[in-house]
């Protein structure tokens, strides 16, 4: 049993759990799944700066902050007690491509030569960490949601604007991966 848990879980197990989050939140308290809103609530709570967009009663939305703190704890528990002792298995083609562009570390879930405190001191690390984060925060809020709010919750509820958003997420990601990442990795 423990061996089964410590191995990487297959996609359908993860998909079922994540899909069930939608009815779980609806039934627990009439909440719609969406994670990027938490970033807005944090702005509203910490740095509202009299901006109308951040001027609302964020405390009413505090369930969302409890949820994201939970995900952080879950990440901690899983990595401490349930982690896979083996190296990650990465698709050969992806690995070869990234190696060609100078990625060295394939042992963990993230390449430490791109994402680590040491790497943050390099232009490359700085761009991946800081610029990447900015685009995620700015883009999700402009889009009114992220993978959870649009791709999973919105599509589950057959919302066509969410389908538009999801397609745009994919187009942006594909463009960056194919045309931007090779350049950014060379920085």
């Amino acid at each position: 049993m423990m061996e089964l848990i410590s191995q990487p879980w297959p996609w359908y197990v993860a998909g079922i759990f994540i899909g069930l989050t939608v009815p779980a939140l609806l039934l627990m308290g009439n909440k719609t799944f969406g994670i990027s809103s938490s970033l807005r609530h944090i702005c509203a709570a910490c740095i509202p700066a009299k901006i109308p967009f951040f001027n609302y009663d964020w405390k009413k939305e505090s369930w969302n902050l409890y949820f994201v703190v939970g995900t952080l704890l879950g990440g901690f528990l899983a990595s401490q007690f349930l982690s896979n002792p083996e190296d990650m298995v990465i698709a050969d083609a992806t690995k070869a491509h990234l190696q060609k562009h100078g990625v060295i570390d394939f042992s963990g879930m993230m390449p430490s030569d791109v994402f680590s405190w040491e790497a943050l001191l390099s232009v490359r690390g700085l761009v991946f960490t800081v610029l990447g984060g900015f685009l995620v925060g700015f883009g999700t809020r402009w889009a009114g949601g992220c993978t959870s709010g649009h791709a999973i919750m919105g599509l589950s509820n057959l919302q066509w604007p969410s389908l538009v958003a999801t397609c745009c997420f994919m187009v942006g990601g594909i463009l960056m991966t194919w045309f931007g990442i090779p350049f950014l990795l060379s920085l």
């Binding site: 402009w142 009114g144 745009c168 463009l175």
Partner: peptide
Amino acid sequence: GGLIFGLGWAI
């Protein structure tokens, strides 16, 4: 916003 988030997601 969707396109911009996609760029960030890949990075």
